[in-house]
């Protein structure tokens, strides 16, 4: 579980995060949603240690990040898997080398053991015939699968995904969403996903944290969204006509 307490972050005069307090639960897909500029990327980067918060604490299963020594932080980072928006695969490496990279860097496994683990993970994300291809030779959806495989290869406790669906067609996006959710439950990982894709919210939003102008404006599950009267989240979610219709239908069913 990741606990965030009273997190604040400013860039110059602009206060981006204004006292965020929330928890991201283990074994669940936790989604951070909000409009562009609401502070969700800054929150994610603060969780990852890329940004240092001005105030507040982030604790990973009781370990407060700001209190850790450099060595302890490095150790903690090996427990983190990250799927970047653009996949961030290493161009000079093949799919297999990309996936095996964290094992090569941080474990004492032999090349044969690394190969065995890489094959298992590649099979898990359903990548076929891509082991020896370079990232530039595979599709966007396959690149996302490689990124997920690389993120989970070292059995992370925490998985972070930044806009995992960006640039994907709706069908592939749902496949990737479901894959992340399955992996989260299977490996009992604390997964935090930064997204503004409402399909993802409705598909895998077990816990949703909604940010508006740097403030936590609402939190709950995908089921709670249909019942809530919180204007901020209703405005955001039902900005799409499709979701307005779904909400209407849902409410009629309940009546």
């Amino acid at each position: 579980m990741i606990e965030v307490k009273n997190l604040e972050k400013s860039f110059g005069d602009s206060k981006v995060l204004k006292g965020i307090t929330t928890t991201f639960e283990t074994g669940k897909t936790n989604l951070i949603i909000g409009q562009s500029g609401s502070g969700k990327t800054v929150l994610l980067k603060s969780l990852l240690g890329i940004h240092t918060p001005d105030k507040g604490t982030i604790s990973f299963d009781g370990r407060i990040y700001s209190d850790l020594t450099d060595d302890e932080r490095r150790e903690l980072r090996t427990e983190i898997g990250m799927v970047f928006q653009g996949s961030a695969l290493f161009d000079s490496m093949t799919v297999e080398e990309n996936v095996g990279f964290p094992l090569k860097m941080f474990t004492t496994k032999t090349p044969a053991e690394i190969k065995e683990r890489v094959d298992i993970v590649i099979e898990r994300v359903k990548l076929i015939d891509a082991n020896h291809k370079k990232p530039s030779e595979i599709s966007g959806g396959m690149q996302k699968r490689v990124a997920i495989a690389r993120a989970i290869v070292n059995n992370p406790k925490y998985l972070f995904c930044d806009e995992p669906n960006s640039g994907l067609d709706p069908k592939t996006a749902i496949v990737i969403d479901n894959l992340i959710q399955e992996i989260t439950q299977e490996y009992n990982i604390t997964t935090v996903i930064n997204t503004h894709d409402m399909n993802s919210v409705m598909e895998i939003g077990e816990k949703i944290v909604f940010l508006k102008q740097g403030i936590l404006a609402w939190e709950g599950s995908k089921k709670d969204i249909f019942k809530t009267d919180n204007e901020a989240i209703v405005d955001f979610v039902y900005s799409s006509n499709l979701f307005k219709k779904i909400r209407k239908a849902q409410n009629k069913e309940e009546i």
Binding site: L48, G49, I50, R74, M82, G86, A88, F90, D91
Partner: peptide, 17 residues
């Protein structure tokens, strides 16, 4: 520079490299 733009450097940092 391309590694920076495509977040490959961030990926290394997040892994603890």
């Amino acid at each position: 520079g391309t590694m920076r733009v495509t977040e490959q450097i961030d990926a290394l940092e997040v892994m603890g490299v």
